[in-house]
Design a protein around this nucleic acid. Sequence first.
DNA 1: AGTCAGCGAGTTTTT
DNA 2: CTCGCTGACT
Length: 778
Amino acid sequence: MDNLQDPLSFLNDRQKSAVLHTEGPVLIFAGAGSGKTRVITSRVAYLIREKGVKPWNIMAITFTNKAAKEMRERVDRMVGMGSDAVWVATFHSSCVRFLRRNPEAVGYERNFTIYDADDSRRLMKQVIDGMSRLPNNFKPRSVSGAVSRAKNDFMSPDDLEAEKGYDLYWRSVAEAYREYQKRLRANNAMDFDDLLLNSVKLLSENPEILENWQERFRYIMVDEYQDVNAVQFELVKLLASKYRNLCVVGDDDQSIYRFRGADIKNILGFEKSFPDAYVVKLEQNYRSTQTILDAANAVIKNNDSRRDKKLWTDKGEGEKIRYREFYSGYEEAGYVVDDIDSKYRKGRSLNDFAILYRINAQSRYFEDRLVEEGIPYSLVGGVSFYARREVKDILAYLRLVESPQDDISVSRILNVPKRGIGKTTENRVTAYALQHEISLYEALLRIDEVPDVSAAAAKKIRAFTDMTEKWRACLPEKGLADITRMILEDTDYENQIEAQSNEEEEERLENLAELMSKIESFQMNGEEADLSAFLEEVSLMTDLDQVEEGTPRVLLMTVHSAKGLEFPGVYLTGLEDGVFPGQQNINSFDPSDMEEERRLMYVGITRAMDDLTLTHAKTKLLHGEYQSFPVSRFVKEIPKELLDIDEPGGSSGGYLSGRNSIPERSARTYRGAVSGRTVSGDIGDGFHGSDMAEITSAKAATGKPKKSPGKPYSSLIERPPAAGAVRYTVGDRVKHLLFGEGTVKEMNPGPRDTVVTVDFDTAGTKVMYAGFAKLEKL
DNA sequence: AGTCAGCGAGTTTTT
DNA sequence: CTCGCTGACT
């Protein structure tokens, strides 16, 4: 006990009061970096050590596995013995545990499958394919989104139809929704929304089960409360309604998940649901310099719907925030990477830096540059490891072994790798299954009864089901890892990949090896490391959860992913009006859309501890076309005196020429890359300090201009245009493929190519590279 | 049954 | 630009 920290040490007065107020509802407004995790963990420790509360009567809910993991570690450290009985989990994994205990109460079997967004979209596509008379623009993606939003609002298909059924589109959404739910049920599967929804159903319809959990969780704490949606709020209310010891911690200014149903009203209106709530505001920030906080405050104060609060720190003023403007995204990335590089040379760890952007598509520029410079990086987000095709294929096999009712998995792998079971056969089996209301797999087992299937096809199908049955039979004695190996072997999966001999082949095999080793270490670590536990863990895992500490590397991620993290040096990039904030939010009629973007900016700024750099590229490749963007309105909301502004004169930044002074570094081998973007091999030798021509020729020399993040030179590097392409001059009328006709206003020699400004008759003024614009003189 | 070219469309953020 | 789908061809 003695080596454990006193729960109240290192807390300021406000934090202390939040910890000491253990009974009844508590609402903590915790500004960015105000030590909220410390408050929650201290509270847990205080409850156990000073109030004699049993560890198993305490629940702490978070949104991400990462947050849960961090909280778990800190609780362990502070509480010591018995801390493992404290329930620390995410909303989703908590729900899975509720549902696994009483699946029958919501009409499911214990081994139900969890569908991720991709599975769910596939199912929706099947549903839509089976519908007649579709409205225009009826795409799985948008329908899935609409259904998800309905679910997050507790709306059933009937509700949806009742509310919006006058409209053909929404009537069809309701119809698809109904069928989608039916099929989920038939597949013994739940999507992410169902995990929450069915948990609420379970608890609200079964008083004895609810009572059981209420008795268990006498003290409940919810982190990132601003992100809860209606269903999550209901769940929390149900669990807390008996003892009412509910402590929620959040920051309305950091609510950035509205698009997936999070409702800021839940935190702003908490006192309406719990009028006796004790409210604490934590405004002292322990993370950032005053300058950074001033900037954050200046931006966020432009939002109307928020609790007024103001972050402060005693950390001192610190450096000014650097604002840099560039002509292109390429230059922007060059600046950021070079800056990191020079700090790295001065002894800073690469772990000190994060490059943040609004949209994942922007990562390319930075990846390319980091690869050129030979700087290790990890990319969070994008296509996550478990969403990669080959990984999902193998997981689908495993799911099939676990739950034969899972039609989505069956149809995914029925002919993967190719085994001669074509679409025609699949359609026949599917029709038969639908008709007889059996699962696809069941129909495959009864292939002899399915009409019109050739003997040859039936034989192949029997080979497939025999294999599956064998795996299922072997599972109990062989275990997860061996079964996976058997699957790989029996399906000849790896050889099939090799046979394809395209350039992703190597990467795919690496991913499979990675999956295999993940499975092995999973099996080694847990006591109940069986197939279903693995599938469950994997289905709730995200990229961010896999970021490994240790290896020094720069992190690249979206601002969304960065929430909850902090870095000494942050590069907040792509600050263009139209990108951040995004065009659709600029166009939106709903002012709260812009407020959400502004909160995102606020989150981005407040990630920085000491150094913050804001960058803006005037021209960017978006939707396959160069477009010019003005600086983000959010940058303009920051008082000038907080900024160190250095706008390079003219269109070419001075830093590019300065690059030549960067000495060569020996080639470095690095690996890592979350999300399977493993970067390895000798990279960057000989090309440092190169100019564009060298890079381009080096590219040509490799003979592989194909873009692949794992390989040195991406096709996204802007190349010089074909020579002699420019046949017009200022004042000429020209025609553009997309923008139509216009007049050339300006032509400036850029660093690599002539920059043309054209005033289009209908599309407005565009700035573009002559080599790319392919303008035709009229 | 499988392959491949050509076309069109879509692009935010994620548990 | 890049993905995914369709449809024609082998």
